[in-house]
Design a binder for these strands. Structure first.
Length: 375
DNA sequence: GTACCTTTGAAGATT
DNA sequence: AATCTTCAAAGGTAC
């Protein structure tokens, strides 16, 4: 099966990744990250100074690092086994008593599409769509508080909106009446039964499913955007109308979704690329246990995704681009994009397009460390 | 209007 | 088997 090896092989691999980073001066990182917040922005700016100039090399570096990390996987498999056993055995029963998987009707089910009136409830989504599982994190309560320790504890003192752990709906910028406040009687499943286009063949609707038309009713776009590409091909008569099911989020993506708001609040940055750089560094600064939460979360998500869409393959979404289902790309555009990427990697010395963060250069900030190197 | 940027991880494709 | 490529999210930026 592509998504999940029930024995946990892939997942272990994922966990291996998690652990691999920790051998690279974890203690130092932790120390550094304790004072990280204030420095993040400055570091980022500094590191971005040469970023665009070396971006291609950085990519190569990253690839090398990835491969290196993979090398660690085998090294730490033993530990992972123990971690995995621990997690399977009780992590989500003890650490995350409110863990949503398989305990709630269906975290993927888009509530807002139930009816026009339900739209006003905006149960799940953030402005840009919240991952259905992420959206359920509020159920986790403070047992699942993945906030890395390096985050300042006094964030709220800085005027940062830092909702209490009990009110993660605010943390996720959930609208009033968000999922965290959804009464059990308003379960996902009952609403799902009223769904039409997003209904999965299994009978379990899933926000990952885009209506074939790609058109989003203003009443339910909130939910269907959850997994839908923002722009859908209006019509392709010849193609069998196939809903687009998005990939389940990996551990880092889940982490990003959760921590993005914090980083945005802490820093003045809004550019996602910059935020992601910070999040990437923080991710590496997490302890194994902290990362394990997200790996496990991602594992569960893949599991659920696989249960919901047993025939789904990541390959489907490769084709979506060619089909134009993932947007208004033509086949030619798609090929162009691929060509550009290839060229970029081949020609590392190309000046290329001006990075969105090149503006930082104009600050005259020194310290040309690449983010990855800084780790 | 939309591709790009940027991150890590998973999975599929290619070598 | 090892390596490469694509796509998941996000939102400002550049074209």
């Amino acid at each position: 099966m592509p998504q999940l090896s029930s024995g946990g092989g892939d997942d272990q691999g994922a966990n291996d990744e998690m652990i691999s980073f920790k051998d690279e001066g974890e203690q130092d990182e932790k120390i550094q990250e304790n004072a990280f917040t204030e420095r993040d922005l400055a570091d980022l700016k500094s590191s971005l100074v040469n970023e665009s100039e070396t971006s291609s090399n950085a990519t190569a570096v990253r690839r090398g690092q990835q491969n290196e990390h993979r090398g660690y996987q085998e090294k730490h498999r033993e530990h992972l086994d123990s971690v995995s056993k621990h997690q399977d055995g009780g992590m989500y029963k003890t650490a995350y008593p409110g863990y949503p998987f398989l305990m709630l009707p269906d975290p993927y089910i888009p509530n807002g599409s139930v009816s026009p009136s339900s739209n006003k409830v905006s149960v799940v989504q953030q402005s840009h769509g919240m991952h259905p599982l992420t959206s359920l994190l509020p159920y986790s309560n403070d047992h699942f508080n993945p906030s890395p320790p390096h985050l300042p504890t006094d964030m709220s003192q800085k005027g940062v909106h830092r909702p209490q752990s009990q009110d993660i709906s605010g943390f996720y910028s959930l609208p009033p009446g968000g999922v965290g406040q959804m009464p059990p009687s308003m379960g996902w499943f009952s609403h799902s039964l009223m769904l039409g286009p997003g209904l999965h063949p299994t009978g379990i609707p899933h926000p990952a499913i885009m209506p074939p038309s790609g058109k989003l009713d203003h009443h339910d776009h909130y939910d269907r955007n959850m997994y839908a590409k923002p722009h859908q091909e209006p019509k392709r008569e010849k193609e069998p109308k196939k809903p687009v099911i998005k990939k389940p989020l990996n551990a880092f993506m889940l982490y990003m979704k959760e921590m993005r708001a914090k980083v945005i609040a802490e820093c003045t940055l809004k550019e996602s690329a910059a935020i992601n750089q910070i999040l990437g560094r923080r991710w590496h600064a997490l302890t194994r246990e902290e990362q394990a939460k997200y790996y496990e979360l991602a594992r569960k998500e893949r599991q659920l995704h696989m249960q919901l869409y047993p025939s789904w393959s990541a390959r489907d979404n490769y084709d979506a681009g060619l089909r134009g289902c993932a947007g208004e790309k033509s086949k030619a555009d798609w090929g162009k994009k691929k060509r550009r990427k290839r060229e970029k990697q081949q020609d590392s010395s190309a000046g290329g397009k001006r990075s969105a963060f090149d503006t930082f250069k104009e600050d005259g900030a020194p310290a040309p460390l690449l983010p990855m190197e800084a780790l």
